[in-house]
Amino acid sequence: MNRTLWIGSVMSGTVLILILFGPYLPMVDGTMDRTLVLRDSEGALLVPPISPSDEYFLGTDRKGVDLWSRVIIGARETFYILAVIVAVRVVAALLISVGAFYFKGLRFLMNLWNSIFSFMPTIFIICILLAIPGVMFSDYRSFWVLVIISAVEVGRLAMVFYENLHRQRKQTFMEAAITNGGSRWTLFKNYYWPSLLRELFITTPMEAGRAMILLVQLGVIGIYVNQQFFSQLDRSYRAVETSDAWPVLLSSLRQDIYSAQWIPISALFAMTFSIIGFYLLAEGLKKRQALKMRRQF
């Protein structure tokens, strides 16, 4: 029995349930009301963030919103962002890799792109690109952030797909297919595409995990996908995250570590849980494919 696949599926399934039925789950307050002040049993005043108690299973965040509800309801938005990033990455990488496989010029461009990006640490380049005023004040900033986050890793993914195609070409049965007179399209449809599809099954959950790690890192340094600028007292403006996505819970991480540990712990737990779920799913699928291939030959 493929235990990795089972555990991975169960973990990813849990996340899926949160996304689909989040607001209807027990103990979830769909309205996400803010509690400003609360009195405990002895009559003392409690101000948010309120620590975990009977009433608030995971405590509340700094605005007084029940954390349990916020984490579960935030799942939908988090994974919406994640899905867009992964989809853009995978589709772009597929197009680039197939193009590079057939056309020399594109192959050169892909290699150049990759070697240029090998000099730019991901977080650096994302910060530099986001600081361009045209991007920063664009009306479609969220869109650009998603594009930038997806684009910086497209080259690496395209290389993975390209190597898969290249490996496939080296197989001995490909020679047979070619000598039998398979046209370019037939070869692609019957040989290259299925092999790419197998790769895709493993890579997509893997990418989702990677993208999530990136979102966590960006969340820690205060970069989110949906941001609005709000004025501060000193005529400066600060970007404020306006969504319920999980990375936002890390925005005041440094204070929370001292005073409200339950906030980062729940956020990091939710994110780590889904990342590990995705990785196990990918590993399990890989194992399953390996077994299947062995049986075929």
Binding site: A131, M136, V220, I223, R238, A239, L253, R254
Partner: peptide, 27 residues
């Protein structure tokens, strides 16, 4: 980058972030 910004370790990555940091604050 993450570690320096998070732990307030004022190295090169920290300064790069705070000077570039216009992605989160600006005047």
């Amino acid at each position: 980058f993450i570690v320096e910004v998070f732990t307030d370790y004022k190295g090169a990555a920290y300064y790069m972030y705070t000077t570039l940091g216009s992605s989160t604050t600006f005047y």
